[in-house]
Amino acid sequence: MIATGTPPHERIQNDETRCECGQLIAKVKDAGLELKCKRCKRIVIIPFAAIEGWTGQSSR
Rank of each mutant, 00 (worst) to 15 (best):
T4V: 13
C21S: 11
P8T: 01
S59F: 06
Q13Y: 15
W54H: 09
I12P: 00
K41C: 14
F48S: 00
Q57V: 06
L33N: 00
I51K: 12
P7F: 11
A3D: 14
R11C: 10
C19I: 07
Q13V: 04
G56L: 04
K36E: 10
K41D: 13
D15R: 15
I51N: 11
A26G: 08
I45N: 00
T4E: 10
D30L: 09
R18Q: 09
L35M: 11
A50T: 10
P7S: 11
A31F: 04
A3T: 07
C19V: 03
D30C: 09
I25G: 05
I45R: 00
K29A: 08
R60N: 06
L33F: 11
V28R: 06
D15E: 11
K36R: 15
I45F: 01
P47L: 08
K41L: 15
I46Q: 02
E10F: 14
A26Y: 01
T4C: 13
R39L: 15
E20R: 07
K27P: 01
L33M: 12
I45T: 03
E52W: 06
S59L: 07
Q57L: 10
L35W: 00
L33W: 02
G22D: 03
F48Y: 15
G56R: 13
E20N: 08
S58Y: 15
F48H: 09
T6H: 10
R11K: 15
A3Q: 10
I45L: 03
G53F: 07
R42Q: 14
G56I: 03
E52S: 14
E16V: 07
T55F: 04
C19H: 09
Q57H: 12
T17Q: 06
V28L: 09
G22L: 04
A26S: 13
A49N: 13
D15P: 00
C21M: 09
C21A: 08
V44F: 09
K27H: 11
I45C: 04
T4D: 06
I51T: 09
I51W: 15
G56W: 05
L33C: 07
A31G: 10
I51Q: 10
T6L: 12
I25W: 02
D30Y: 08
I2M: 09
R11T: 06
E16C: 13
A49P: 01
D30K: 12
T55G: 11
D15Q: 14
R39T: 05
A49T: 13
